[in-house]
Computed example of a mutant assay.
Amino acid sequence: MKYITVIALLLSALTLTAQNNPDAILGKWESSEKNLIVEVYKQHNNFQARIIWFNNPGNLLPETDIKNPDKDLRSRKIVGMDVLSGLEYNAKQNRWTGGKIYDCTSGHTWSATVWLASPDELNVRGFYLVRWLGKTMLFTKAD
């Protein structure tokens, strides 16, 4: 019983940390595949993320946004590009919602929701229309 109480208190502390700190997602995050680092930053009341590093062994991926539906943006560099925008912190849901995530490998933009699994684990869910039609990516806090 003592262990259950300790676990419950720890989970409550994690939840309260995020609820009391909408800025908890700010900083650098590395993908679980270790091939991408993004930096989450705040602009006005919205949270955004840009690619600051990606591993491209053998130059298999293009260095520019060649799949973008806007022909004028196809020459922009992947590194430095905003890929997540418009997130707002929702204290009731303990999530950052209402965002858009851009997939430069396909040129598609999806709806996005972000939440902390722990102070060092960030989940990013990109989806189409409803949350269960999507994919969740895991990021860990980067140095």
Rank of each mutant, 00 (worst) to 15 (best):
G58S: 06
D65S: 13
P62C: 09
N45W: 10
N46E: 15
I51N: 01
N55A: 06
N46Q: 12
S75K: 12
R76T: 13
T64W: 00
R76I: 15
P57R: 06
D72H: 13
A49E: 01
P69H: 07
E63D: 15
N46D: 12
N68R: 10
E63A: 09
W53L: 14
K71M: 03
H44I: 13
A49T: 00
I66S: 04
L60G: 05
L73P: 07
N45C: 10
F47P: 00
R74A: 07
P57V: 04
Q48R: 12
D72A: 14
N46I: 12
R50G: 03
S75L: 10
N46P: 03
R76S: 10
N68L: 08
A49V: 02
I52C: 01
R50F: 03
N68M: 13
R74P: 07
D65M: 07
H44G: 10
L73F: 12
P57L: 05
R74K: 15
N56C: 05
F47I: 03
D70P: 03
P69D: 04
F54C: 03
L60A: 09
D72E: 13
D70Y: 09
E63Y: 04
I52Y: 00
N45K: 11
L60P: 00
F47V: 02
P62H: 14
T64Y: 00
G58M: 05
L73V: 13
N68A: 14
L61D: 07
N68D: 11
R74N: 06
N55P: 01
N46M: 08
E63Q: 07
T64H: 02
N68T: 06
N55Y: 03
L73E: 15
I51R: 02
P62F: 12
K77P: 06
I66L: 10
N55I: 03
Q48F: 08
W53A: 10
W53P: 04
L61E: 09
R50I: 01
P62Y: 08
E63K: 11
D65T: 11
F54V: 04
H44A: 14
R74Y: 06
P57S: 04
L60V: 05
E63I: 09
L60C: 05
